[in-house]
Amino acid sequence: MSFGPFLLLALMEGLVSAAVLALMASGLSLVFGVMRVVNVAHGAFFMTGAVLAWFVAGHVPGPPVWGWLAALVVVPPMVGLMAAAVDTLVLKRLEYEPEAVIVATIGLLYILEQAALIGFGPDARPVAAPFSLRLQLPWFGYSGYKLFVVAAAGLVLLALWLVMTRTRFGLVMRATQVDRTTARAFGINVDRVYAGTFGLGAALAAVAAVLVVPTTQVHYLMGGDPLLLSFITVIIGGLGSLRGTLVAALIIGLSDGVISMFWAPTLSKIIATLLVALVLVFRPQGLFGAKA
């Protein structure tokens, strides 16, 4: 394959991973921004979303598109509600103490993973794509669904941005982010904002899971890698900054696509991790993060 098509394939692959990463990481970033909570269970929420998507899609008769759509509608609220319950029942009682919250979410990660292992089993299982369009380019074929994932992720991120900047819920969330005590003094129910934010963050991971699951497959350990990449993205972009998260996701995704195709996949992981180290040394607040 010559250089042009090779680069095109690398960029397309990179764009897909960037889109999914942006969705995942924005959830993580949102939770940290508003609540100052490092959610180690974020990848487990992603996995839970995928398992539920498999379950829902398997119980809807008719062509695969209905099952997938049902999953897209039902699963993110389910995961969101579950996360909100975790916030109210566990994190709130720990008073959002950073170390305690990290330990608690690690525990949650294990509970979710082992629950999936018991209920769903150790095997990898597929979810049918809603449509099977295949694009035949002159040099190679490519999945049309993957390009749809990019577009859909873009739409979800746009909606998230509108919610954050144009709605009352977004305003309340931003107010809580700036100053929790003052927000409470103005009559904002901070507990409910926290539960809502934690739920929204998890729901974003679940949306990413439903989108990505037809291109990969459901497995109870699938949350590990996305979690790691999300942390890398959020650290580079700046914790709590949506814009930074998006830019960082694009950098990580595209560089991963190009570097792993032209050189080696391990090299791209090395570079991403090195980038995190450099950012932490020279710009600890991240590319777009505000100074703490």
């Binding site: 690398a10 190679f140 999945s143 990969t216 497995h219 350990l221």
Partner: peptide, 26 residues
């Protein structure tokens, strides 16, 4: 690894047989 398309670009055109052995959920 969870995505493989990127590796397929490295398959030489003269290839007659693709030998694959993969383990794990991917």
């Amino acid at each position: 690894e969870t995505s493989y398309t990127r590796y397929f670009a490295q398959i030489p055109a003269e290839t007659e047989v693709l030998y694959h052995v993969m383990v794990g959920p991917g």
